[in-house]
Amino acid sequence: MISQISPVIHPRPFLKWAGGKSRLIQQYIPYFPANYQTYYEPFIGGGAVFFYLQPSAAILTDINAELITTYRCVRDRVEDLICLLQEHQNRHNRDYYYSVRANIAKTELEQAARLIYLNKTCYNGLYRVNSQGKFNVPLGRYNNPHICQENLLRAASKTLANVEIAQADFIDVLSSAPNSNDFVFCDPPYHPISSTSYFTSYSQNSFHAKDQERLRNVCAELASRGVKVMICNSDCELIRNLYEEINFKIYPIIAARSINSNPKNRGMVYELLITSY
């Protein structure tokens, strides 16, 4: 009898996320620093860059409490999480989706399973909440959504095993005291380039021009300490001006945009990759 060998699953994002970087990493590779000690990512989102780099030491943070809970459960209780996701997968239909969406999970493990389930079945994998902080994305059109990707979750769990994960505002990266041997990658909510591309409802607190300026100031402070800083954002006058003022290097990146209320504005667009080095 010939034994079947399970395919090797390389670590990669276990969540779909608006603005995810999986398709852009090949363009980013020439700009990643060759050497660094600790990797910081204060807007973890789907974590594509983290999973690609697989740094030996990392601190991952985000203001989104549900997202951070989910990362911790993947790191610490992946088998229990898989069991809950299998239940969601077995019960999935339209009515079940809206029932799960309407009800808040009680335990952290249930919260993590709920977020992954909604993420895999909602429209475009979009994370959006209303002013009360309630998830409000409609059901997506999927014939057979991959709700419980066991091997992918286990691979992610191994990669996250020794990683520090915390809920925090991006400005808190300064208090972590990164030094010149460290690398900080920032993937904030992008500044809108048109009224139809405006998407800042990532958490209950929207991300506006003043927040982009706050982020620039944080990046400038990090750079003054010798920290290697990389930021990605939309290609627009505001972002260019903010980082040109502090003499950061700006590189155009070609990206595919799939989320826009106006279908004519979807497709290939330029984004910016910005570095302090």
Rank of each mutant, 00 (worst) to 15 (best):
G47K: 00
C219G: 02
Y123I: 07
Y97Q: 00
S206H: 13
Y40F: 15
D211W: 02
A168G: 09
N162M: 08
L272C: 08
F14I: 01
G45K: 02
F185Q: 00
V227Y: 06
D95Y: 08
R72V: 14
P138L: 06
A177C: 12
I2V: 14
L139R: 10
P178T: 07
R128S: 08
Y97F: 13
T196Q: 11
P7Q: 10
D172R: 14
A18Y: 02
Y190R: 03
M268I: 14
A105K: 03
R12Q: 15
Y251L: 09
G140T: 06
P11K: 03
E150R: 11
K120F: 05
N233Y: 02
Q26H: 14
S203E: 10
L85K: 00
I147H: 01
N265Q: 14
R101I: 01
H92G: 01
R216D: 06
A209F: 06
Q54V: 04
Y36T: 11
I29T: 15
I254M: 12
I147E: 01
N217P: 04
A168W: 07
F43H: 03
K16S: 09
L139T: 03
R94I: 06
A223K: 08
I82R: 03
S99T: 11
Q149L: 12
H191S: 13
R128L: 04
V173A: 04
A48D: 00
F135W: 08
R154W: 03
F248M: 10
I171S: 13
R214K: 15
G133V: 08
N144Y: 14
R94T: 12
I246G: 07
G267E: 05
E66G: 15
D62S: 00
D182L: 02
N205M: 12
C236N: 12
F32V: 11
K158V: 11
I250F: 09
I259S: 05
S276T: 07
S131R: 15
N144L: 10
P42I: 04
D62C: 00
R257W: 04
P192C: 05
V49S: 02
N35H: 15
R141N: 15
L15N: 01
I231F: 04
R72K: 15
Q37P: 09
L152C: 08
P178M: 06
I259D: 03
N103S: 13
R225E: 10
L118A: 05
A113P: 02
G47C: 05
P7T: 10
L109N: 07
A102Q: 11
I259C: 09
R214Q: 14
P188Q: 07
L118N: 02
M230I: 09
S195G: 08
I274W: 03
C122G: 05
H146Q: 15
L174T: 10
Y127A: 06
Y198W: 11
K228Y: 15
I68H: 01
L273M: 11
I68D: 03
E110P: 04
N119V: 04
N35F: 15
G226A: 08
A105E: 08
G133Y: 05
F207K: 01
R23V: 09
F207A: 04
N247V: 10
N205S: 14
L153Y: 05
C219T: 03
P30G: 13
Q4M: 14
Y243N: 08
H208M: 10
I274Y: 04
E271L: 00
A177V: 09
H10K: 13
L15E: 01
G226S: 07
D95Q: 10
A223W: 05
C186D: 08
